[in-house]
Computed example of a mutant assay.
Amino acid sequence: MLDVTKPEETGGKAVLYRMVMPDHLCPFGLKSKDLLEREGYEVEDHHLTTREETDAFMERHGVKTTPQTWIGDERIGGYDDLRVAFGKEDPAQETSYRPVIAIFSVAFLMAVALAVATFGTPLTPRTIEWFVAISMCFLAVQKLQDVEQFSTMFLNYDLLARRWVPYGYVYPYGEALAGILMVGGLLTWLSAPVALFIGTVGAVSVFKAVYIDKRELKCACVGGNSNVPLGFVSLTENLMMIAMGIWMPLRLWMGW
């Protein structure tokens, strides 16, 4: 099999066919060209400038999509195939914690900014509260973008949703409500029980699915299309909500 990771052994040239039309510039064609060049290939770049030309190309080569790349006499395929050929993971199969890292990082920096603006110092007890509350809001937004898809993935492991399907639709709104109220320190009598309830049910569900039943599932915590594995991240999300559900009323009761 052709080793595309060594351009010097394959002639150093690649042939790429991609759509470049007045009303459509294929993004995967651009990504393919960029990847080939970064891997050390000189790209012979062929533009398919009309729908008719593109359809004729696909019929001639027996392919269903463009772009298409050839290295030597071997057809590599589309952008995802090219990534795999270069030893990179297929984006469709790749598990990634990037969405979670982005959410928690930005939430933390926002909490620090709020603390500095409010108290003149970055680290206060309120910083942690804001961090968790803002994270809850961000995570809820991810779910609310496609509640139907989220609820479908959620049914794979949530114990309450399996008994009462509408809970999968209610959950994102409950998380968003609790998070928003906790950001402002408002209506703790409502936000704390909501966070405590959904956090507890979620933690038990995730623990059972992952650590008892040993199931390998995708986490619905960042929406229904995520490639984040179910496990530590989702459990952490739920434990954070449990902690806030206990801490917020305790803080008020103690007068802190």
Score class of each variant (00 low, 15 high):
4 V>K: 05
29 G>W: 06
5 T>W: 06
23 D>N: 11
30 L>E: 13
23 D>F: 08
10 T>G: 03
3 D>F: 10
24 H>W: 14
31 K>P: 02
14 A>R: 02
8 E>T: 05
16 L>F: 14
10 T>F: 13
25 L>K: 08
31 K>L: 02
31 K>V: 00
15 V>P: 09
3 D>P: 01
31 K>E: 02
14 A>L: 05
14 A>Q: 05
5 T>Q: 08
20 V>Q: 12
18 R>N: 02
16 L>A: 09
12 G>I: 08
8 E>R: 08
26 C>A: 05
22 P>E: 03
2 L>P: 15
18 R>E: 12
20 V>R: 06
3 D>V: 04
7 P>I: 05
20 V>W: 05
29 G>L: 12
10 T>M: 10
29 G>E: 07
9 E>A: 15
7 P>Y: 08
16 L>D: 08
14 A>T: 07
17 Y>C: 02
9 E>L: 15
14 A>F: 13
1 M>F: 14
6 K>A: 14
21 M>S: 02
29 G>T: 00
8 E>L: 00
4 V>L: 06
32 S>W: 01
30 L>V: 10
11 G>V: 05
31 K>C: 00
16 L>M: 03
27 P>S: 01
28 F>I: 00
9 E>C: 07
16 L>V: 07
16 L>Q: 07
16 L>S: 03
22 P>W: 06
26 C>W: 02
27 P>Y: 05
27 P>G: 03
29 G>F: 07
16 L>E: 13
4 V>G: 04
13 K>W: 14
19 M>Y: 09
1 M>P: 13
8 E>K: 04
25 L>P: 00
2 L>C: 02
1 M>R: 11
7 P>A: 09
25 L>A: 06
9 E>D: 14
24 H>P: 06
16 L>H: 09
17 Y>K: 01
1 M>A: 08
1 M>T: 09
5 T>S: 11
9 E>V: 04
8 E>Q: 10
22 P>G: 04
30 L>M: 13
2 L>T: 11
24 H>K: 08
30 L>W: 10
11 G>A: 11
28 F>Q: 03
6 K>Q: 14
26 C>G: 04
6 K>G: 02
9 E>M: 12
5 T>C: 12
2 L>N: 03
7 P>K: 03
15 V>I: 15
3 D>S: 09
12 G>N: 07
6 K>S: 11
30 L>T: 10
10 T>V: 09
3 D>Q: 11
1 M>W: 12
7 P>F: 15
10 T>C: 13
17 Y>G: 05
3 D>R: 07
25 L>D: 12
16 L>W: 07
17 Y>F: 15
20 V>A: 05
10 T>W: 12
26 C>L: 02
15 V>L: 06
25 L>I: 14
2 L>G: 01
16 L>K: 01
24 H>E: 08
14 A>W: 11
15 V>R: 14
22 P>D: 12
22 P>R: 11
26 C>V: 01
1 M>V: 08
20 V>E: 09
11 G>W: 14
24 H>I: 00
19 M>C: 09
28 F>S: 02
28 F>M: 07
16 L>Y: 15
20 V>S: 04
29 G>K: 03
5 T>G: 07
17 Y>A: 06
29 G>V: 01
26 C>K: 01
2 L>E: 04
30 L>C: 03
28 F>Y: 11
11 G>I: 13
32 S>G: 00
22 P>V: 02
15 V>M: 05
4 V>I: 13
19 M>P: 01
24 H>T: 00
17 Y>H: 10
32 S>L: 01
7 P>S: 09
29 G>S: 05
24 H>F: 15
11 G>Y: 14
